[in-house]
């Protein structure tokens, strides 16, 4: 019975959370208060783990909550519940889109949507960059050069510079798979205790 309820709760989350993984959070808090399957403190831990493991955050959260609530079957059922509405809705849209692909109005709408997508990706990247490179907590400490020095996380800036040169400037490295750079960064992070 709990599996059925898990599926249903996450189906609803997948159906109503629009705009990416973190949009599922308010729904998860709501599930926590209504069902008592897991506490809000546990939820905070789950967010931390979901953000520090590979995979989309929303999916990680569903697996974690489901697993905590009802073991391995729970993890699987919650995750399937979460993705079910996406599969149904997107398959319907993809089918319709296929038929109207050559329609001029649809084509014109996508002409406007492409810069929108690139802008949303840029904004997401910049927001991550802000918490990665800036120490905003230290803002206003000291003055002049000292303030400037404490504003930036210089280790992060140095790593980013090396990565930029490697991925854009060095020919043999440019072609490497992104995961190579991710793994190398993880190693650097541990070595130099980021």
């Amino acid at each position: 019975m709990i599996l059925l309820r898990l599926f249903w709760e996450f189906f609803k989350t997948g159906l109503f959370a629009v705009g990416g993984g973190l949009a599922t959070l308010p729904f998860l808090y709501d599930i926590s208060t209504r069902t008592g399957w897991f506490s809000q403190a546990q939820l905070a831990d789950m967010i931390a783990v979901s953000e520090s493991t590979p995979g989309p955050i929303g999916v990680n959260m569903a697996t974690y909550v489901g697993f905590t609530t009802a073991g391995i079957p729970g993890g699987i059922v919650a995750t399937l519940g979460l993705v079910c509405p996406s599969i149904i809705v997107i398959l319907l849209i993809a089918k319709v889109l296929e038929q109207f692909r050559s329609n001029q109005t649809v084509d014109a709408a996508f002409y406007g949507l492409r810069p929108c997508s690139v802008a949303l990706i840029s904004a997401a990247g910049l927001l991550v960059a802000r918490i990665t490179f800036l120490n905003e907590a230290d803002l206003g400490l000291g003055n002049g050069l000292a303030a400037l020095k404490s504003l930036f996380d210089w280790k992060a800036v140095a790593l980013a510079t090396v990565l930029l040169i490697a991925t854009r400037g060095v020919k043999p490295l440019k072609k490497l798979h992104p995961i190579v750079f991710i793994a190398a960064s993880a190693a650097v992070g541990i070595l130099f205790s980021f």
């Binding site: 520090s52 840029s122 990665t132 854009r168 991710i182």
Partner: peptide, 30 residues
Amino acid sequence: FADIPAVKSAFAAIRVCVCVLIFNSVLKLW
């Protein structure tokens, strides 16, 4: 898991890398 110092360090650095990779992607997608 999320409290292990090595995990925290690794992910702080991975975030830097993801920023750079996204920057490259944006230039390409542009």
